[in-house]
Structures are given as C-alpha cells and as structure tokens.
Design a protein around this nucleic acid. Structure first.
Length: 643
RNA sequence: GCCAGUGUAGCUCAGUUGGCCAGAGCAGCUGAUUUGUAAUCAGCGGGUCGGGGGUUCGAAUCCCUCCACUGGCUCCA
C-alpha cells in the first residue's frame, strides 16, 4: 500500500501501481470522466501512469491550465495522425500546446496547404477522436528510437533525438500514429469533442530562417462543442475591435500606397487624440523633472557611425540621403539617442546637473521588413515618447524606480491594469551578439532586477532578448486577439556614453562617465494608440476622446438653440459639434452612436423652451431631459470618474 | 525577407467551367420631407476589376511579374 496525499491535505491509501485515473474513480465517476492528467509530486503525468511510491497527487481537468495544456498537446498528436493518414509520407517537426490551442509543424514535401484544406483535416481528426484510441506511453532506447525514425525517414525527429539522453526517451502512440514525445497525454482521443483548425502558416525549422520552411497548422480543441462555439464568438467580437477597422471607422488614421507602406497618416480626429495623449504625458514628465527638446528628423551619417548603429543596421535601413555636396550623407533618424547624446556633450557637465532627463516626442524611421508591417502596431515611421536620462551609477536605481512609477502611473490612467514587465537579459551562450564590457552588463542587469523587485511588478525574465547595447525592461500588453506587444521600455545603456565620450565632473574634480537610461512609457504613440483602441473598442476615456458631445437638433429651426448650448458648454471646456444635417433624429442618433460619441444632446422645442437638453449616453440610451447647467455637473462627474 | 492567402465603386460584398454595355446595399450628390431617442423617400453620379506584361477571336475570370494588404515565421536600434 502507498499513501496518496491530495490537494486538500487528505491522505488515502492505494495499492502500489495505482493510476491517477483510479484515484479519481475512488472519489467520483464524474471526476474520473474529466481527468485529463495529474500532477504527481509536482510533475505532470499521464492519468493512466502507475504510481509506485507515496506521492502528492493533484488531478488535472479542463479547469487547470496544466490540464488544458495536456489536452491541447494530445490534440496536436491527433492533428499529426490525421495529417499522416491524409498525406502519407510527410515528416513532422514539433507539435506543442500554446496559450490557446496547439500547432504542428510539418514538412509536406511538394504539397502546399491552404485554409481550404483545413475542414477535411478537421473531419479526419473528429473521425479519429471517435475511435477513442488510448495514448500509450512507451519507454524506448535511443537506438531503437533512431531506428524507428530512420525507417520512417523523418530527419526532423532524428535531429530532436540527437539532443536527447538514452534512458529518458519515450514514445506515445495513439491509433496508427507514434511520436517521439515526453508527454504527458490525456487518456484517449475520445475526450476531444470539438476541433477548429484556425490557420496555416510558414515557419522555420528550429526558428532559424536559414533552415527549412515547414508548414505550421494551428488549431484549438475543446471537450465540449459549446465551448468551441463560445470561443468562435469571442474571436468574432475581438475582430470588431481591431484597431485597423476602428481606425478607419472613426476617421483616426489612414494609409496611402503612394505615401508608402507602414507610414501612417494621422487624420484630424486621430491627431486630436494623439496630441491630448502627448500633452498628458508631457505634463507627467515635466512633473518628474524632464526637460523637453526638439531635434531634427535626420542626422549626419557620422552620428550613427559613432553610435555604432550604422555598422549594425545601416544595410537594412532607409538608405542615406545625399545632397548636392559630394560625399555628404544624412540618415533618417532611426532613434533619438544620438541626438540627445550630442545635447549632453554640448556643454561641460557637473555632477550637480545630474540626473539630466532629456525628453522628446521624436519621430523615427526604421525600414521594417515588409512582412512585419501591421496597422499602427508595426510601422516604418513612428513617434517615440522618448527620453534619455544621464545619471551617475549611484543614481541609477532611483532613476529606474522613478521611471517605473511614471510608466505604471500612465498605464493605469489609461485603464491598463493587466500588463507584465519582461526583463530581457543577455543570451549567455552568445556573448558576441552584444557590445560593452562584461562588468557593465552585470551591473546593468542587477540594477534592473533589483528595481523591478522593489516595484512589485508582475515580471517574467527572458534570456537572449536584451538589446545589443544593454539589458532592458519591456512592458508587455495584449491586443484584442491576444497577441502580445511591447509598449513601454526602459533600457540601461553603458555603451553610448562611451562611444560619445560623455563625461561629467564629479565632486572630486575628476571626470566620470555617466550612465544612460533610454525609456519610453508608451513605446510609440502609434503602437500605444493601437492597443488603446482595441482595449476601449473605440470608446476612449472622456478626457481623451476627440468629441465628447454631439448636439442633435430635432429640426432646422432648433439650430440656433443648439448653437447657444454649444457656446455654453464650450465655456466649461466641453467639446463637440452640432449635427445639423437635414436628417431624421433616428438617423443622427444612429450615426453618432456608431462614432462612439460619449454624450448626445438632443434638442427639440420642449428643451429650447426650458433651457434644457435631452441626454443620451453612448451605449446606454436615453437619460432624460435636464437643464444645461445640470448636464455640466453630470459631465464633470463622469470626467472625475475617468469614464 | 520566408510560407500561405487576398485585392471588383469611398465602405461591405456579388459576378470565376473565359463570351451581351461589370452589379447590389451603404456612403456621396440633387430634390422632396422638418422629423422626439439606432437607418424618411425618390432621382442621379461614381469602377484603368491593385499596376505591368502574356495566352486567346475574346480576360475581372487563365499564366508570369511587381505592389499593397491579411495570417503566421524570422526580425524589431
């Protein structure tokens, strides 16, 4: 007999070799039907795997992230089985679960797959799922495993096997499909009731663009049909919030092929929004001791040779601008820091001037790869809410905390509460990718880690994601479709001060090298606004939205009264417009609802007589009539609540 | 940049076994209507079918190429 400890702390006795499934059955049949896998002493196992020693066991179902992972991992195997039966002879890369669903990378040889082929594959998967084939685990020697895949002719699996240690290799088989796999898996394919293959994409083997292109098939699966239907509805709703769609509907921005791909054009409404954001951010920064500057959109090529950027990015950037003077070359600025370094170097600096915080809404141009462009999120010309802080080594941590406070303050003001701070450090296996000394890197990395710890932010740490000149902290946030984007960024840099030979005179009357922090709380105005649009579905906070009110006269004869109302409200800094088109009131309401105008003020003869307006709140409907003065109060209350 | 897909009027879309002057709704314009909480009615104008090249008696439709966009991959100073 062995002792099994359950999450509630209770201990039950079972025969040696009991499975998690059997433990579930001992609790209830219903639970047993829903067990996907189990966490045994902290490791996720197959529910069907025998347990031989005293253990702590947590049964995992669809309600556990780890249970879902098992489910989706098994679904990837089912996809592979379906693919192999439909396209015999294909080779398999990897097929992991992801945040939502799973994918499998396959080499289809000469076959080219499109989304039109997916329904047939789904059907095959469902057919195989109905067979309720068990996922059977098998420990196998490395030589036998190699022999299996050599006979099958799957060089990808052989390459994966190459990195595995003999004695720790397992195969999983369900139906006619066997895969090299660590597991675990769900008991049988019958658990998978609903499947949607969502997209086909190219991917590089091992993520290396110099290696084979594989076909990646993405899918998502569920234990109940209803959950798939709900998921699909959610995706449809998310698409309605897409900033590219809303940006066009709300007349915020546009693109023009003639102007160029990835070069957003801000329309009047979008410009109002953007400038209000900038003003807000400028105020917050000036409160924190930043000094704003303006620098040109171009810079001499030597500037970027000095900074080191020309050597690293020159070939893949917008190419130099030439002038009538032979040999003279300028580059569109891809970042603001070299200009700011020149500002620092302009006059001798004393330690008394530090920290020096130089801020600029600086527009930069980067020749992003064509396949990368994406609405406002990834563009070739964008405006950073940039600043560079020059400080002493001692000031580094407090400056870092100051920036963390600024960033979290502005993100919260915008209603973003769900973001993570990603600490990006060096790839220890690839020191050649980075410039700067080892000591400096270590000092910078520990400064970031310490400050972030003190701030109490939700963090993740990723090795190998650092910039080439220093480690960084990025604020990651998700768009409507769950894709993760980097917004704000804070980067420590020991490199540029050296390259620009920046110095200050210390209290010891000796020269010292300042430390530099690059930081942008929004990242770029473009990307920030793209995320803001998706999070608010176009219903911007009242203080920020381009038009706060629309006055809708019921007929032409009320236009004069509408103007009176508009004038009164503008004296209270309430902005908007009169919709005096010769349209029915129903039509005007509909149009202004769709434009997400927060308040509609409907004025007819009754209102004009009494000095009133009839209020309609966007998305809520009629709030009844009130005096104009009372509306001002109502409006200011809504403003105060940051609605 | 790579893989796959898409591109017809300002917008959403129909039209593809190649064949009369390429259609609809919305938007726009003109006129009528002066309207009470999500679309008033009528008339009119509007398209190099993404650009270029080719096949064909004939191309929106088939082929090549370039561009843009979409979904991923890679990249992101």
């Amino acid at each position: 007999m062995i002792n099994i400890t359950l999450p509630d702390g209770s201990v039950k006795h079972f025969e040696k070799g009991v499975t998690s499934m059997e433990i579930a059955q001992s609790i209830s049949e219903g639970l047993a039907r829903n067990v996907l896998s189990a966490e045994v002493n902290g490791v996720v196992w197959d529910a069907s795997r025998p347990i031989y020693d005293d253990s702590t066991v947590k049964l995992l179902t669809w309600n556990d992230e780890k249970g879902k992972n098992t489910f989706w991992h098994s679904s990837a195997h089912l996809l592979a089985e379906a693919l192999e039966s439909l396209y015999p002879g294909i080779k398999f890369g990897i097929g992991p679960p992801i945040d939502t669903g799973f994918y499998y990378d396959v080499d289809l040889g000469d076959v080219s797959l499109s989304v039109n082929d997916l329904p047939a594959i789904e059907d095959k998967m469902l057919e195989l799922a109905k067979e309720k084939n068990a996922y059977v685990r098998q420990e196998i020697s490395k030589s036998d495993a190699i022999q299996y895949f050599e006979e099958k002719g799957d060089e990808y699996k052989l390459e994966l096997l190459d990195g595995l240690e003999d004695g720790h290799i397992t195969f999983y088989t369900q139906g006619n499909f066997t895969d090299l796999c660590r597991g675990p898996h769900i008991p049988d394919t019958g658990f998978i009731k609903a499947i949607k293959l969502t997209k086909v994409a190219g991917s590089y083997w091992k993520g290396d663009e110099n290696r084979q292109t594989l076909t990646r098939i993405y899918g998502v699966s569920f234990p109940k049909q209803k959950e798939l239907t709900e998921y699909l509805t959610m995706i449809e709703e998310a698409k309605k919030r897409d900033h590219r769609k809303l940006g066009a509907e709300l007349d915020l921005f546009m693109f023009s092929e003639k102007v160029g791909a990835g070069l957003p054009i801000w329309l009047p409404k979008g410009t109002q929004l953007r400038e209000r954001l900038q003003n807000y951010l400028r105020d917050e920064q000036e409160k924190r001791g930043y000094k704003m500057v303006v620098t040109p959109h171009i810079g001499g090529k030597e500037l970027y040779v000095t900074s080191g950027h020309y050597a690293k990015y020159g070939a893949d950037s917008f190419q130099p601008i030439h002038t009538p003077r032979e040999g003279e070359e300028f580059l569109l600025k891809p970042m603001n820091c070299p200009h700011h370094c020149e500002i620092f170097a302009h006059k001798p600096k004393s330690y008394k001037e530090l920290p020096l915080r130089i801020g600029e809404f600086g527009t930069v141009y980067r020749y992003e790869q064509s396949g990368e462009l994406h609405g406002l999120s990834r563009v070739r010309g964008f405006t950073q809410d940039d600043a560079h802080i020059f400080c002493t080594q001692d000031q580094l941590k407090s400056e870092f905390l100051n920036v963390l406070d600024l960033t979290t303050t502005v993100l919260h003001k915008m209603g973003f509460n769900d973001f993570t701070a990603q600490i990006s450090l060096r790839d220890p296996d690839n020191p050649d990718k980075y410039i700067g000394s080892d000591e400096n890197w270590k000092a910078a990395e520990s400064a970031i880690i310490e400050a972030t710890l003190e701030s109490g932010l939700k963090t993740t740490t990723v090795l190998g994601e650092a910039a080439f000149y220093g480690p960084k902290l990025d604020f990651m946030i998700k768009d409507a479709l769950g894709r993760s984007w980097q917004l704000g960024t804070i980067q420590v840099d020991y490199n540029l001060p050296e390259r620009f030979n920046l110095e200050y005179v210390g209290s010891d009357n000796k020269t010292h090298r300042p430390v530099m922090i690059h930081r942008a709380p929004f990242g770029s105005m473009e990307r920030f606004i793209s995320i803001l649009i998706e999070h608010t579905a176009g219903k911007f906070p009242l203080w920020l939205t381009p038009d706060q009110i629309a006055i809708l006269p019921i007929s032409d004869r009320l236009n004069d009264y509408a103007k009176e109302v508009e004038l009164k409200l503008s004296k209270h800094d309430i902005r908007g417009f009169i919709d005096d088109r010769t349209e029915s009131i129903g039509k005007k309401i509909r149009d202004n609802e769709l434009k997400r105008i927060p308040f509609m003020l409907i004025v007819g003869d009754k209102e004009a007589e009494n000095g009133e307006v009839s209020i309609r709140r966007q998305g809520e409907g009629d709030l009844g009539s009130m005096k104009v003065e009372d509306f001002v109060i109502l409006f200011n209350e809504a403003l105060a609540k940051n609605d």
